[in-house]
Design a protein around this nucleic acid. Structure first.
Lengths: 227, 227
DNA sequence: TATTCGACTATTGTCGACAATTTGACGGAG
DNA sequence: CTCCGTCAAATTGTCGACAATAGTCGAATA
């Protein structure tokens, strides 16, 4: 699905926002680097007006931080903040799974199961490379959230937090819990198929907590090496 | 250089943002009404530049909705969206209560208990007026969230969602569950005092779910009368 | 030589004007 | 009388320029 939303007249600020967002998430604009308004305006061949609006939206997504009269920088991600995000994800995605268990249609659940099936094939065909979690994992979570049919949940997670998560992955590297994560995903889908919202929430929260614990260990190792 | 008494240099956009936010939340700017840029710019005696930035931030808080080439309107609040927000609050504030149980200091917990004590006195001295929930209730929830010490949770709830909730209250009226809500608050604080995060989360979620159910009944009555 | 003060430069914040688009109205045709 | 196309007014999106602030570099002095 190519991302070309052409419903209404797309404004320059929209294009620039999407572009910078992509460049931040993909690492072209590195964390901590300065966002110079004149420089970027010249580079993109636009004025500072739309650029400033785009930066404002980036700030709302927490992808950049801005200090008055100083400027904006690509967000630099501390381990503490990453762990905080996992707590938010645990709460929000747990609720999403609960709601999805009653809100998703049978067809959507079937689609989701098919996605997991593909993931499993990929893992079994290439066990060493370990579940190309770089997008596959987020794809799964993305669909659960969409399945909740709760527009605020969808916006919070899909439009804001997931971009941050992707940025973190580029900085900290993939978490690599391939097999276990896949199994947990399958259990969550099973609960949703059973229309068991309570169980779906419990499993999703357990899943995210496990991922968080894994990240914590990773960070501890990393800092042990660094220190 | 030594810490300025107030925040660092406050920009026009900051002032205008705070002002419009207050006017929306307090009902001076009514839901659904148009935000005319030239008109407001004239009224506030500023240019459209900072005003547009303020509107952008309002949009990020979901206090206004903006359509390209059409303009911005104060958000008009549907019953469905209100119920969606309660689901988000249940998830987020449940997590906040869980974290607060381990993150709050003894002094903070004592302060919180004192706040509730004052609330109880107020309720008992004036049982008819019913727990001036207009701010007292949010005050309680606000402190729990602050107590979680999770900056992202704090920002999501205190900077964004609670303003929306206050706006809803002005439109739909106060929920009026005074006595029961107060008792539930006291139970939550008791769990936090016991450092029982699991219990604090359960109680908070139950509390918010009950408030949500109450709102649902209110809305049903309201629509029954209207239809 | 180190330090502090002061001017300078570059960047951000703000402003007014121009261009593009939507909305509403007016008039004419069916 | 209704419907549709055209037009005009107003509003939003965009631009370039001006003003204010922060950080830097250099010079003068102890």
């Amino acid at each position: 699905m190519a991302a070309t939303p052409e419903e209404t007249h797309v404004t320059i600020a929209d294009r620039i926002f999407a572009r910078i967002q992509r460049e931040i998430v993909e690492g072209t604009l590195k964390p901590g680097s300065k966002i110079s308004e004149p420089e970027l305006a010249r580079a993109y061949g636009i004025s500072r007006g739309p650029l400033r609006e785009a930066i404002g939206r980036l700030e709302a997504c927490s992808l950049v931080v801005r200090k008055p009269n100083v400027g904006a920088r690509v967000v630099s991600l501390s381990a503490e903040q990453l762990l905080e995000i996992y707590h938010v994800r645990e709460a929000l995605e747990g609720m999403a799974a609960r709601l999805a268990a009653t809100a998703m249609s049978d067809a959507e659940i079937a689609d989701l199961a098919a996605l997991l099936s593909a993931h499993r094939q990929q893992v079994e065909s290439d066990p060493s490379h370990g579940y190309f979690q770089k997008e596959g994992d987020l794809d799964f979570h993305y669909r659960i959230v969409q399945g909740s049919k709760n527009s605020r949940l969808i916006e919070l997670l899909c439009n804001d937090l997931y971009h941050l998560v992707r940025l973190y992955r580029h900085q900290f590297g993939v978490i690599s819990r391939a097999q276990r994560a896949l199994v947990e995903h399958e259990h969550i889908v099973a609960a949703i198929s059973d229309r068991d919202g309570e169980m779906a929430e419990l499993l999703m929260r357990h899943h995210i907590r496990a991922t968080r614990a894994n990240a914590m260990r990773r960070i501890a190792e990393r800092e042990a090496v660094a220190g």
